[in-house]
Every structure is written in structure tokens, then in C-alpha cells.
Design a binder for these strands. Structure first.
Length: 467
RNA sequence: GGCGGCGUACCCAAGUGGUUAAGGGAGAGGUCUGCAAAACCUCGAUGCAGCGGUUCGAAUCCGCUCGCCGCCUCCA
């Protein structure tokens, strides 16, 4: 049994073995902090959170680095619009990002480096590239010379000549080739700026990832990830910089997640067709959102819809209900060993390029089996299989703890109904039921149902839940 | 123009050469229940965009056609 991962570099699944036995070094390109994170970001965050969790589940000690791009044209633009400092903007959105991450149940990376805290390393790397003859200065800017790096295009499988022919970018005439990109930009008055051998300026976008990944993970490291759109030019440029500077590979496995579309179009800031993470979490549980993303393979494109998210929410309810039943049945007593056969099946699915849709199918097979056992009042293996199911959910990061409470809280927040009122209705109905006044009991229940509250008569009494 | 991807039941979505095409949601019938809810059971694509081809055998490989999308520019 071995983990196989689809490697963009090479375009096929390859057996994964870390360079250092037992330790995985992983870098994922994070976000530019100039605005609230949206569902598209959510997908890449959850994708790599699951990969991180699964690698840990396999027993690897994972060094997971995910950066913040906190110096960039968009940040400067935003700061100017708000008449605020860039620091104020980036601090605000890094704070928001951490709130969203917490709400989504994302495991914190080992380190979250910021570009502005690594200017020295960036300058050092550019100097190295200059020494290698791969960089050239024009006025106060420094560009990378693509012509000097023979492997350029190997990740995105692009041919330099065709790229030049197809380029419809406004070409900076000072560049030797239209594909050359900025390593260092001279800064205009009012922009963030640092001292450098080339005068005052700031780093280009791509160089920060090269500098920071090398600093924290060495070179080469095991896994480099990000969204599909980063393949070209961002990751291609990172490779050119890092491999050009050090003469050895940057990363061994390159993973890219598919896009989240909406109405067949890419969800993006520029198109304005996005939902922010926080607005979706007002209406949906983070576990449901995660379930929704996991129901599709991470490399496939997805078309977002609230209907789809609602379906995922109902499916999540089903898993949670079963886990609750198991917990009730078993109590929260002594921990048991998770059923090894179930865990093994989970591994088999996930080892195949993190096939979460199949892992979910396994979860539902287990849900059905467990419910059948619980219905039959048979005890054989319930605790072990329940423990396995719980472990699988945890490895996927489905936030099962507090699920029912969160659902109730969202409901109570959106309506003016209080728990006390609901309990009063339940008491009234219980009295009617005790008197076998079924008509009145049903009337109360129907009334609550009309308000989105479902009652369940159980041996422990009447429970309520949100529809 | 170049490169890459997709099209599987009402909806979402696995499967990429070999017994009956996973799983979820919705739907229908049933068991349980005072009635419900939940759960469980049963049903549901002789077919995988279309047409050809390769093969003993294809949703899976090849070719063509149709439809859709992404990257080539900041973007997860």
C-alpha cells in the first residue's frame, strides 16, 4: 500500500516517498491579503488541509508552510482607495483570514511566513541570480531572463516560442523577452519600499515563494501546491528562479487543485461572482461546506451552487446522526481501537491521489452498517467501527463536535425563537400526548414544523432539532 | 492561434480495459411509530454526449463530430 499522488510535473500519478523518511516538507502558495477570502480560496484551503491531515494520519511529521503575500499592487491600490497604510490593510485581512481558518477548522500550518518579513532572503536570492547571469537591471528594476533558463516551461508544458507568439500582454519594452518577469521593482513615492543593491524598491510577486520555501524547507522539498491558475506563470517562475539560483530541483511533487466555478464561470474577485467564506458560514455549517468540497475530487472543476451545498448539508446530517447514535450507545467511556479493516479501506481510497469522493462513499457504507447494527440492538463491533468512522471524519476534518449545537445556534440567531419557547411548546405537547389528545399534540408539532423545528419522540423524551 | 481538461441516472459525483456502472441528495413503495421524525428494507442508468474503429471484451484505448470550460494577463 503506497500513497500515489498526481504530479503536475510529468502529468501522472506517482508513488510518493518523502526525501527524508518520515518527514514531509510541503509548501502551499497562500493568499494575497487585500480583501476577504472567498469560496474559491476556501476550496484550495480545504484541499490542502485534507492533504496535510492525511499525511499526518499516515504518520508523517509534516513541515507545512503556507505564506501570506503582503506586498503587492492590489494591496497598494486598496490602501490608496481607503487612504490607509498597507500595513493596516494586510493586518486586517490576515486577522480575518485567521478567523475564517478557525471557523473552517483548518489546521494551522507549521509556519505562515510573510513576504515583508523576508526581504533580506529575497534580496540575497536576486543577487545570486545576478551572479548566475540570470537577472538584469533596467533602471531600478531587476528582471529574470527566461532565455537563460533552459527548462522554462517544463511544469506547464509550454513552448517559449509559442508563448511569445500568443502573448497578448502589454509588453514592457525594457524587457529582453516578453516572458521575463520582475524580481525587484523600484518603488514609487508612498509605496512600501526597502533598501537594496538596486536602490529603493520592493520584491516582485514570484520571488517571495522561492526565497521563503528555500529558507524553511530547503531545496528540493517534497510537495509544492496551489490552485491550477498558479501553474503558469507563478509556479513556472518559481522553478526558474530557484533552480536557476541553486542548480537543483525546487520541489518534487507539484499539486494543483481545480477551480470553483459558479454558473460555469470561474469564481473570482474581478468577475464579482463570489461568496465570501464568512457569508456562507452564516447559513451553512463548516462541516457541510467541507463535505461539499470533498464530494468532488480536488483536481476536478466544481460548479458551486447553494442547492449542492444544501444536499451536502443533509448528507452531513446523516453522518453526524449516526455518530451521535454510536456515542449514545457506547457512552463516552474507555477509548477503543478503531476497526482496522475500515481504516485500511479508508487508506486504500485516500492513497489513490486523495480520492475523497470514494472516502465519503466508504463513510456512507459504514453509516448504513452501523445504523443496521444499532437498529438490531446487536453490539458486535459497534464501538470499533464507530471509532473508525470518527477517526476517518477527523482525518478529513469534518467538524463533528458541536455540530447539532452550531445548527441550533444558527437557527436561533436567524429567527426570533428562543429555546425557552420551544421547550414550552414541547411541554404543552407532552401534556397533550399524556392525555392522548393526539389532535392537539399534532397541531403543536405541525406548528413547530412550519417554523423549521422538527420534533422526535424518543425513549429519552422529545428532542427537537432544526430541519 | 498554442496547451490542457470536461460531457456518467431527476440533481451532485466516483469509476479510465474484464463478473450485477460506487456513494450522496431528491423521488416511489414498505417496516417501525398513536401519528410523525430518524433509521432500516426495496425500487431506480441493458447504459456512460454522438458516430465510427481497435479488442475475445470499452464508460474506460484510437479517430472524427457536437457541446462546455480553464490556462496562455493579476488570480486559489
Amino acid at each position: 500500500m503506497a500513497l500515489k499522488i498526481f504530479n503536475t510535473l510529468g502529468g501522472q500519478k506517482e508513488t510518493f516517498e518523502p526525501l527524508t523518511p518520515g518527514r514531509v516538507h510541503m509548501y502551499v502558495c497562500g493568499v494575497t491579503v487585500y480583501d476577504s477570502a472567498h469560496l474559491g480560496h476556501c476550496r484550495f484551503l480545504i484541499t490542502f488541509d485534507v492533504i496535510y491531515r492525511y499525511l499526518r494520519f499516515l504518520g508523517f511529521d509534516v513541515n507545512y508552510v503556507r505564506n501570506f503575500t503582503d506586498v503587492d499592487d492590489k494591496i497598494i491600490k486598496r490602501a490608496n482607495e481607503e487612504n490607509a497604510s498597507c500595513e493596516a490593510i494586510t493586518e486586517r485581512y490576515i486577522g480575518e483570514f485567521h478567523q475564517d481558518s478557525g471557523a473552517l477548522g483548518l489546521l494551522a500550518p507549521t509556519i505562515e511566513p510573510r513576504a515583508t518579513a523576508h526581504i533580506a532572503e529575497i534580496v540575497e536570492m536576486i543577487k545570486r541570480l545576478e551572479a548566475q547571469g540570470l537577472a538584469y537591471r533596467v533602471d531600478g528594476d531587476v528582471f529574470f531572463s527566461v532565455a537563460g533558463f533552459g527548462d522554462y516551461g517544463k511544469l506547464s508544458r509550454k513552448n517559449i516560442d509559442e508563448l511569445e507568439a500568443g502573448a497578448r500582454v502589454e509588453v514592457d519594452e525594457r524587457k529582453r523577452s516578453p516572458l521575463d518577469f520582475a524580481l525587484w521593482k523600484s518603488s514609487k513615492p508612498g509605496e512600501p519600499t526597502w533598501e537594496s543593491p538596486w536602490g529603493h524598491g520592493r520584491p516582485g510577486w514570484h520571488i517571495e515563494c522561492s526565497a521563503m520555501s528555500t529558507k524553511y524547507l530547503g531545496q528540493p522539498f517534497d510537495i509544492h501546491g496551489g490552485g491550477r491558475d498558479l501553474i503558469f506563470p507563478h509556479h513556472e517562475n518559481e522553478i526558474a528562479q530557484s533552480e536557476g539560483a541553486y542548480g537543483r530541483p525546487l520541489a518534487r511533487f507539484w499539486l494543483h487543485n481545480g477551480f470553483l466555478n459558479i454558473n460555469q464561470e470561474k469564481m473570482s474577485k474581478s468577475l464579482g461572482n463570489f461568496f465570501t467564506i464568512r457569508e456562507i458560514l452564516d447559513d451553512f455549517d463548516p462541516a457541510a461546506l467541507r463535505h461539499y468540497f470533498l464530494s468532488s475530487h480536488y483536481r476536478s472543476p466544481m460548479d458551486f451552487s447553494k442547492d449542492g451545498l444544501n444536499e451536502a448539508a443533509r448528507a452531513t446530517d446523516r453522518i453526524i446522526e449516526t455518530l451521535d447514535r454510536v456515542n449514545y450507545w457506547a457512552g463516552y467511556g474507555a477509548p477503543v481501537v478503531a476497526d482496522p479493516a475500515v481504516i485500511e479501506s479508508f487508506r486504500a481510497e485516500m492513497d489513490d491521489d486523495f480520492n475523497t469522493p470514494r472516502a465519503l462513499a466508504l463513510i456512507f457504507d459504514e453509516v448504513r452498517s452501523l445504523n443496521r447494527l444499532l437498529d438490531g440492538k446487536k453490539s458486535k463491533g459497534i464501538e470499533e467501527r464507530g471509532a473508525a468512522l470518527g477517526a476517518i471524519c477527523d482525518t478529513l476534518g469534518l467538524l463533528r463536535d458541536g455540530y447539532a449545537d452550531r445548527k441550533k445556534q444558527r437557527f436561533l440567531k436567524k429567527t426570533n425563537i428562543t429555546i425557552e419557547q420551544i421547550k414550552e411548546f414541547i411541554d404543552l405537547r407532552d401534556q397533550a400526548r399524556a392525555a392522548k389528545n393526539w389532535q392537539e399534540a399534532d397541531r403543536i408539532r405541525d406548528q413547530l414544523a412550519a417554523n423549521g423545528i422538527v420534533l422526535e419522540d424518543t425513549v429519552q423524551g422529545t428532542m427537537w432539532k432544526v430541519k
